[in-house]
């Protein structure tokens, strides 16, 4: 029963990683860049939700909507101001810019909200008891897994069926050919950032509902872990982001429970290294040799 409860908490933690990992993987798949500022958009989402509830006194669900809107705008703004001018630049320049954006967001948050942690009120509270109270599952856990599932189904059908989703796949394969079809590549990339950032806001709210202390660096570690999850599952692959995120969450939760809390991150990254040695493209990624 103990194992089951660790497993469930691993799945829900992993669901959050998966939602974040989607942002990395979609942006990588379409813009071919690693948006290292993605983790910090999560933090912004958390703060926005916090402010809406605390200062405006609005209900939690509404704060999620506001956080999504603000993060969507932020994602579009970041892409337009920081990354778009670098479309033809070497990827190293883009990577360094992304790190710069990450610091910019963290320090802006420091300036606006200060260094001391804010106490976030979870959007849902309480728990369900099963098997006569021997298994307790918090509602946050249930909500997280359900939301992750809804996003998985929704996003997969969006990408495979919708006009914009198909345009995204076309851009991810060949931007020149996509333009020859009449696809506005800049708008497609911008939409990708918008979706990734809206998901980051959702992830921020869920993350803060699990660990209610909110700081300017709150997004960093989950961001890095979710990036790891994206690579683990195969960067660029949407099902890979889900699989990688959930597996990573389970590994982390079980490692914390049965091995060592301090070592859990080391174990996590060790697993990643081993997987990448065996499958360089990640679990579901396709290995595509760099074109010369």
């Amino acid at each position: 029963m103990e194992f089951l409860s660790y497993l469930i908490s691993g799945i829900s933690l992993g669901s959050i990683y998966a939602i974040i990992a989607l942002g990395y993987t979609m942006v990588y798949g379409i813009a071919k860049m690693l948006n290292f500022a993605h983790g910090d958009v999560i933090m912004v989402g958390g703060y926005i939700s916090f402010c809406v509830v605390t200062y405006l006194g609005l209900p939690g669900w509404l704060s999620v909507v506001v956080a999504m809107l603000v993060c969507t705008a932020l994602g579009i703004l970041i892409e337009g101001l920081a990354y778009k001018p670098l479309r033809q630049a070497p990827s190293l320049a883009v990577l360094i810019t992304a790190i710069g954006v990450s610091y910019f967001l963290q320090n802006s948050a420091l300036l606006i909200w200060g260094a001391s942690p804010k106490v976030y009120t979870p959007i849902v509270s309480g728990q369900i008891e099963m098997f006569g109270g021997s298994l307790k599952i918090s509602w946050v856990t249930v909500v997280t897994v359900v939301i992750c599932f809804i996003i998985a189904v929704g996003l997969t059908s969006f990408i495979s069926k919708s006009r914009m989703g198909k345009a995204m796949r076309a851009c991810s394969e060949d931007k020149g050919a996509a333009q020859l079809m009449g696809i506005n590549v800049n708008r497609t990339i911008s939409t990708t950032f918008a979706i990734g950032s809206a998901l980051a806001a959702v992830a921020g709210v869920l993350l803060c509902s699990f660990s209610p202390s909110l700081m300017p660096t709150t997004g960093s570690m989950p961001g890095i872990k979710a990036f790891t999850a994206a690579v683990f599952g195969g960067i660029g692959s949407i099902p890979g982001a889900f699989l990688g995120g959930i597996l990573l969450g389970i590994i982390e939760s079980l490692a914390k429970a049965y091995i060592s809390t301090q070592l859990s991150n080391a174990i996590l990254f060790a697993v990643l290294i081993i997987v990448l040695l065996v499958r360089p493209a990640g679990l579901l990624g396709k290995y595509v040799p760099e074109k010369v």
Binding site: R169, A170, E173, D174, G176, A177, L180
Partner: peptide
């Protein structure tokens, strides 16, 4: 119709 066709191979 570009050189080398450039169809979307994964679609």
């Amino acid at each position: 119709v570009p050189e080398g066709r450039r169809i979307f191979l994964q679609m």
